[in-house]
Amino acid sequence: MINTLLANANGATFWLPVQASTFAEVHDPLFYFIYWVCVVSFVVVVGVMAYFGVKYKRKQEGERTSGNRGNFALEVGWIAVPSVFLLIIFWWGFQGFVMYQTPPANTLNVRVTADTWSWSFRYPDGTVSSELIVPVDQPVRLTMTSESGSAQGAVIHSLFIPAFRLKRDVLPDRYTVLWFEATREGTYTLFCTEYCGTGHSEMNVPVHVVPSDEFAERLAALDSAPDGMTTAEWGQQLFAQQGCTACHSVDGSRLIGPTMQGLYGSTREFTDGSTRVADENYLRESILEPSALINVGYQNVMPSYAGRLTDGRLDAIIAYIESLAD
């Protein structure tokens, strides 16, 4: 079973996932050092316990036992020896932590915004993506904050990429910084690890590590459907990636927001008493400015996606919603 896991794991081991960043290269040796310290200590403690347990098992009632009450040298010894290992582990961990906190010069700066419950990444050229795309072997600095496009306040999130062994909380009204240098091309996962409500477990997106020469191309391609996909199909994919599925079903069931099934072309009633037919313009406006018109029976909780979706992506999502019309 473990072997199957290992075989499937694409460079991953039983204990750790794929090693894909420079920080992972610093982290993993320390991890295994602590691991072996633990294994040896555990075997010694439990082994001695088991040995005593077997050797000194009671054979008859009232048998004599040792009058030993302590041994100063032994006690000093088992304070001193673990202390040495503890100091090594502390110092090693601290070294790694300093590296984790200190980005080098010449980083690619990406601004990260977390909302409930989606991520958006803005590149220096202004491109906005819902998935993280980074070039391989290039230090990247993430400057992160949490925002709320909706009436409710922003909350704490945490950005975690297991393949990079990296994590940092993302706070509202603050900026935290995280940096990494990916060392291995491929697609990994980015998780939110600070509990943030209903959609917390769906707040994960892919991280694409691409060759440096393809990076610009990939950024440009963010604005049109990938090869072999229709606009509506791409829209479907984006609909999931943007976290829309957390609140909007596509099968008619009621979640936090209205279902998308049969939405296009239907007449919507709003809390201010007005009504409107859901056409393309309406869809566009309600994605970019959701709090302007609230459907009767729903709360004003949807975040605005203005500035987080490029026009091409917005069109694709609208095309997908159109395809769900009755």
């Binding site: 300093v98 906190q101 009204d173």
Partner: peptide, 14 residues
């Protein structure tokens, strides 16, 4: 103090 970069962390002025 340890990590100069931290000046940006928790910067309150957006």
């Amino acid at each position: 103090m340890v990590v100069p970069e931290e000046e940006t962390n928790f910067l309150r002025n957006e």
